[in-house]
Design a protein around this nucleic acid. Structure first.
Lengths: 260, 260
DNA sequence: GGAGTTTATGGAAGATAATGGAAGATACTG
DNA sequence: CAGTATCTTCCATTATCTTCCATAAACTCC
């Protein structure tokens, strides 16, 4: 990829993510950290972004643009690590279904050029890839769930019922011995359709959600292939899951990733 | 292939792709890299494109109505006024279909709390209403058209074929005696479905697009109820439209929207 | 129609720019 | 204040650009 194009891509990415580490940007554009560092320095000259230690942030978030705020505050480093670990599980060229929610958003950030086709009901995820000509982003229909930027409702369910993907990347708000839980009824329906339409199912759930049950039961572990979590997950439940044949990935939380 | 023809082809390619490597262009037009390099240098003289290392980029990718570029939009004050005038035509409580494109985006900005239900294939418009609990925003399914933030494809068409609204607010990139034109084939299909599904059809088209025809014919005036434009529209065509029973609204460009 | 001239084309050699990595300097973390 | 990560600066490698030249096509003039 050529400098001009790469820089435009970096800028677009920062519009969506607000902040990004150099590592992350390098992965996204398929270049080395050195190169991205130079690009970021160049872009700073143009006043559009500002360099920070370890990354860069957008200087003037364009309110008119379709930028969705992904300013999540809980377990950011954990989710970041989970995102990285989960993205590593994806084979190049696979087409993936990506769930809404901040954890899945972090996975999307690390997917980079590995995936060509993305199917999602998350507007932030859609936006993340929308600037790129190399990705085909399929957005489900549906009604926007206020503030989450998630598309819900029968149209969203219908979209995933019609689609098929190599991998589905989902998250939940609770996981226990009997299965996975979520707190939004409308989202549970969609997630079930996602699971049904994917050859492989990966759940990304940070350690604090282990041994917790939310309002709605989503699914048992029959169709779950992988669970990606962080090292803070209780060992007992991790062992239980492994005993059931689930590949449990424990992402080590790295001390970088400064708080936004 | 003759130089002139090849250069036109290169320019057209860049309009669509925004960036391209010389290698890519050479392959596209069936010439050597050396030749393409010369062409690109020549085109740069004509100010339409800019050379970069390894390729070229289009200089003004926003000759087109539907490119959503925040940096600089053409006819901003006009579109702003058109947006205001068009929003005034909407009755409180109506549900509206909103097209993609910058002009329609300006209409959406002025709709405020008047409308309860919005149906759109434009991600910027969707985002505009997404923070509010007072609006139900229905987003069509579809594939993101790179850089436009517009959902296109069969799923988008299908969504509007199933929906019905009181009003559809659309825009185009050209309007002449015989009808309205647009420059994107994929968007034309969607707009036709929007028109079919709405009781009232409003077109918002700034004055510079009058007496102009784009690549694709969208529709004649049979189903068009209102055309909102600015005072810069040529009087002759305005009269022609009125003679056909179309309510033509001329929005005065207010001085409080200075040119960017 | 034909010879000479102009223009276009594709490739080659040296010059320039971009890239990715390494070593030492600097900033952050606890 | 120690340990780590990141930044700066540099260098070797690679890719691209410029300039030039030989060839081929189109044009001009006779």
């Amino acid at each position: 990829m050529h400098p001009e194009e790469r820089r435009a891509k970096i800028e677009a990415y920062l519009q969506a993510a607000e902040f990004a580490s150099l590592e992350e940007l390098a992965q996204h554009v398929g270049a080395s950290v050195s190169t991205v560092r130079r690009d970021v320095a160049e872009l700073e000259e143009g006043k559009s972004i500002r360099r920070t230690h370890g990354g860069a942030r957008i200087l003037q978030p364009k309110t008119d643009e379709f930028v969705f705020n992904v300013r999540d505050t809980h377990q950011v480093p954990e989710k970041e690590s989970i995102g990285e670990a989960c993205a590593a599980l994806i084979e190049p060229g696979q087409n993936v279904i990506i769930d809404s929610g901040t954890t899945c958003f972090h996975v999307a950030k690390h997917l980079g050029e590995k995936v060509a086709q993305v199917i999602t009901n998350s507007l932030p995820v859609a936006h993340l890839f929308s600037g790129s000509n190399r990705h085909e982003v399929h957005v489900s229909g549906g009604v926007i769930y206020p503030r989450l930027g998630t598309l819900v409702g029968p149209d969203a369910v219908a979209t995933f019922s019609r689609m098929h993907a190599d991998v589905a990347i989902l998250s939940g708000s609770g996981i226990a011995e009997d299965g996975i839980y979520n707190s939004h009824a409308l989202i549970v329906d969609i997630q079930r359709a996602m699971i049904a339409g994917a050859a492989k199912v990966i759940f990304c759930i940070d350690g604090t959600k282990f041994e917790r049950r939310s309002t709605f039961f989503l699914c048992d572990f029959a169709k779950v292939d992988v669970v990606v979590t962080d090292t803070g997950a209780p060992a007992a439940l991790v062992e239980t899951l492994r005993a059931r044949g689930i590949n449990v990935v424990l992402a080590a939380v790295s001390p970088r990733h400064p708080t936004a």
